[in-house]
Amino acid sequence: MDIIYTIWLRSMIRYIRSKSRIVGSISMPLFFLLFLGFGLNSVVRIPGLGENYIQFLIPGMVAMSVLFTSVFSGIQIIWDKQFGFLKETLVAPVTRMEIMLGQTFGGATTALIQGIIIMVISLFVGLQVQSVIGFFIALGFMVLIGISFTAFGIAIASRMEDMTGFQLIMNFVVFPIFGLSGALFPISSLPSWIAPVTMIDPLTYGVEGIRYGLTGVSQINPVLSFMVIGGFACIMTIIGAFLFRKISI
């Protein structure tokens, strides 16, 4: 535990120091929220929420900020590889499992904080948290998304030599995961041929879970959402740990 905490602590110190990264990674979901939210608020009707697109969009943007931050945190291992710091951890008398878990929890925590920042900002554009329990349910889902996708980032970073493939991963893996998740639109209003794709996207369940927590309304049963995203977090952690074990420098 002490080693996991040590690695986690380092992530936190680095996170707090990187002001530009904090601002940079909240700006995109924030702009989405403002432009799409205000732009489409009066045009779009959401089942169950009526004419309140912003209410619908906020959980999606919270999930987005958690998703991107956590993938990026995981992939940052490549920097450690390139700048040599990874060697320092790998040659210490600690297991790779501990290092990997420390990184995962570190990434998930930064992602959670980023998500909370978006949530707080959302309070000013119309977010009305339904209940305290709901708020904590949302946090729980954010943690699970954070763990899943940090582990996902670590898995990818373990197989990548440098940052050149990063853009590719972002455009062809992470963005589709986000786009298909129902963060921007209700999944029930999709054409029937694309709906199944949405249902195999693990983030869909994360977004629906956060949405249930924050607005009290969701299209997927929150218990099912919890089981799917929870299971996905476990599987990704195992895959990430497995690939990280084989990392060579």
Partner: peptide, 14 residues
């Protein structure tokens, strides 16, 4: 190590 292996974002003490 031959190549540097410090974390540049941290202080010497850290």
């Amino acid at each position: 190590f031959q190549d540097q292996s410090l974390d540049e974002e941290l202080t010497a003490g850290e």
